[in-house]
Each structure stands twice: as C-alpha cells, then as structure tokens.
C-alpha cells in the first residue's frame, strides 16, 4: 500500500524504451486540470524545473498522469524514481486548456512522446461529438505508446513508423498528406479534416503545418519550449506567433501552427545544448552505472 502523501508516485510503468508513465498523487492539481495543460516539476533540491504535459487526471483518485522521456539528467532522475517516492515539486495545472468544440472531423496527430499529451485532448474532442482520426508515429514500433488507449477513442486510426516496423512506413506528415489527398479525390470514405491537432517533436509539428497550410486546414500545435517558472514571469519560453512574441507557458502551450516561427523555436530549444550534455556527463561520472562495473 502506498501512502498518499502529496506528489507521491502511486504507480510507475515503463511504456517503451526510455519512456515512463508516472501516476502522481496531487488532488488539487487533479481537481483543476484540463486537457492541454501541463505541470512544472523539480525532482531534486538542486534540480532544474522542467515542464511535462498532464497526460491524464483523475479527480476521484486525486491523481495526475505524467509521461516522461529520458533525454538528459533531469529526465534520467525521473526515470529512476520508484513507486512510493515523492517528486520534490509539482506546480500546475499550467497553461491554457485546449479549445474543445464540435469542429466536425478532427485529425489528432501524436509523434513520439507527443502521443501522451494528445491523448487527453483526443478524449475531449471525441466527447464533444467530433469524428476523430488519429495518427500516431514513432521512430520504431518499440517507441509507440498508448496505442490501445488512442485507438479505442478514435473513428479512424493509423500508425506510422520511420523504419516501417509497424503500420505506415514514413512520417506522420506523409500519412496525413496521403489522407487529405484521398479525401479531396473522393477516394475512400475519409472526409476533409476541419481541424488538425499535432503534438510531437518540433520538426514533426513543422512538417504537419507545411502540409495543412497547402490545404488551409487550421492546425493546432503544442509547443515545448524551455521554461523556468511556467507562470509568465521569466520569458524563457517566448515564441513568435505571427507578428507577436508570446509566452508558451501562459499564452499557450497551444497555438495556431500556421503562425508559429518553428525555426526560432528550434534554435531556442537548443540554446543550452552544450550545458545539457555537460550536466549529463557530470551525472554519469558521479553515478557509475551497473554496466560500467560489468565492463571491468
């Protein structure tokens, strides 16, 4: 039995290689969380603050679900946490919630870790009476997450992998283009999308927007900029949307993808690349892994 202290990890599950799901006890966040929002966490007294999307929330159980992909030191620390341990700090729910309306036919696209944040939006979109087509993609089959959950809420469901290990071989943007083309030709029973929601790596969202722009289909993306406070105080997360500078943490994270300056976003995301690598190397030096010992 796990004791329910605030921010304690009630449940932990490995979803795929380097992708973990954490169910965290925090009734206050669960009470007010809506689809599309995120939290900022800190996992160590000397740790940094990183944003993670709320992949699910359960008001009754007082819990929220976070999904983290291991890429640097902080996410390595997240991966190593065990059930029963508490996360030092969890702040949320942050950001604006998704715009949920009856749009008609909505295509929900999730790439890699981006599948996680699409899931709660997908559910809401479906509940609002939309026809939902879902496309999820990853580099390979092993990295696909939430496949069954997503499929269950979708009218049409497609999988893409870069290496073709499952489903369509290629990027989600290519699959989308194929589907839109088919809808315009009247081949198959696939109506023209009224809206696309795409969440995933920045390059993926950019590619999706490049496709939908040609057909003038409104496309919503969720931006994963670097953040510190997450409350609009520091401006680290600023992005250009149309002619305006916006803060992803409070004005977003969702924006009209056709207006987002993705090149700027990519550049800003990579600003601390060297430092992030250094941080990881230092961490490895301090924590000789089991593999190291085996090498001896």
């Amino acid at each position: 039995m796990v004791k329910n202290d605030i921010n304690v990890i009630i449940e932990k599950e490995d979803l795929a290689e380097k992708i973990v799901k954490l169910v965290i006890y925090n009734p206050q966040i669960a009470l007010n969380a809506k689809a599309g929002q995120f939290v900022i966490i800190r996992v160590d007294p000397k740790g940094e603050r990183i944003p993670l999307t709320i992949a699910d929330s359960d008001k009754k159980a007082g819990s929220i679900t976070l999904i983290s992909m291991t890429i640097g030191k902080t996410t390595t620390l997240v991966e190593k946490m065990r059930e029963g341990e508490s996360i030092t700090d969890v702040l949320g729910p942050l950001g604006k919630c998704s715009e949920i309306e009856r749009f008609g036919h909505v295509v929900c696209i999730g790439g890699g870790l981006g599948i996680a944040p699409v899931f709660p939006i997908l559910k809401e979109i479906k509940n609002a009476g939309n026809t939902v087509t879902t496309i999820i993609g990853a580099r390979n089959e092993k990295l696909l997450i939430l496949e069954e959950e997503m499929k269950a809420c979708s009218d049409n469901f497609f999988i893409c992998t870069d290496d073709g290990s499952k489903g369509f071989k290629g990027f989600v943007s290519m699959k989308l283009k194929e589907l839109i083309t088919a809808s315009l030709n009247g081949t198959g029973n696939f109506p023209r999308p009224d809206r696309v929601i795409a969440i995933g790596p920045t390059l993926m969202m950019k590619s999706v927007c490049d496709v939908t722009r040609q057909y003038d289909i409104k496309t919503i993306v969720s931006l994963n900029s670097i953040m510190i406070d997450g409350t609009g105080m520091c401006g680290t997360c600023r992005v250009e949307v149309g002619t305006e500078t916006k803060f992803a943490c409070v004005d977003g994270p969702e924006f009209d993808g056709h207006l987002v300056n993705f090149n700027l976003l990519l550049a800003r995301q990579n600003y601390f690349c060297e430092e992030e690598q250094l941080s990881m190397e230092e961490y490895k030096k301090e924590n000789h892994t089991g593999a190291c010992k085996l090498d001896l």
Partner: peptide, 24 residues
C-alpha cells in the same frame, strides 16, 4: 534574457553554481 530570467536562473535556481545545480 529578460532580467527576470537571468536573475531567476542565478538566484532561485543557482545557475552560477552549474553544474552542481542543474539549471544552466
């Protein structure tokens, strides 16, 4: 940087002690 960001990194997050502290 906004001054808020620069100062928050250094004061609240102790970036001047990076990499002992994680915020760069």
């Amino acid at each position: 940087y906004s001054a808020n960001e620069f100062l928050t990194r250094n004061n609240l997050m102790k970036a001047y002690l990076f990499p002992e502290y994680d915020t760069p």
